[in-house]
Amino acid sequence: MIVGEQKPLEELWESIKDHKKVLVFGCNTCVAVCQQGGNKEAEILASLLRMKATQEGVDMEIQDSGIERQCEHEFFEKTEERVEWADAVLSTACGIGVQFMAEKYPKPIYPGLNTTFLGAVEELGVYTERCQACGQCILAQTGGICPIARCAKRVMNGPCGGSTNGKCEISKDVDCAWQLIVDRLKLLGRMDDYEKLTPIKDWSSDRAGGPRKLVREDVQHDS
């Protein structure tokens, strides 16, 4: 899922303070899983911002609402009125939702979160990165552990010389991805694969190739 972290209240206040009618707008799918930016969190954030407005002596009306996903047109239908009412929206979706809303509505849409990464819920309150959406999955070759997302140098033929006691040279709190890969290959009885040189990667399917687009003609509407 997409993991996000709410921006500091001060920064959010700076974004919205000159508006009169602000809608704090949650997105209840990905980011809500890490309890940031869901509809419930949007409600809490709206309360905090109301208090802030009172403290600052600013006359401002703040409402909250939310939908399942801010990255799909159909979910917006039920909340059109709320969005129309506002003269600015503080979206607590990931960066995708914020941009998608901005394309739909001719008014300021501010980001409420920092979109942090694509990750997993390791345990309650702990989220860790797993994928960088490089567009060319190599997990079959690396025992199911991604060196692009999980190695600080995205070394394709690792580990580098900085791996110590299973940890990365950047921090004792970060697992060495290549230690994990080696452990996994061992578990799977595939250590022979370790010696296969991973060829130079085609990064054109990654960010390097420009904004990416996927078209599925088979599922497109005729209209």
Binding site: N157, P159, C160, G161, G162, S163, T164, N165, G166, C176, Q179, V182, D183, M191, Y194, E195, L197
Partner: peptide, 17 residues
């Protein structure tokens, strides 16, 4: 560097490269 058991294999990869 760790893991020690692949340190020779890693050299073999560099030689192959």
């Amino acid at each position: 560097a760790d893991p020690f058991e692949i340190r020779v294999a890693r050299l073999a990869k560099k030689v192959a490269a």
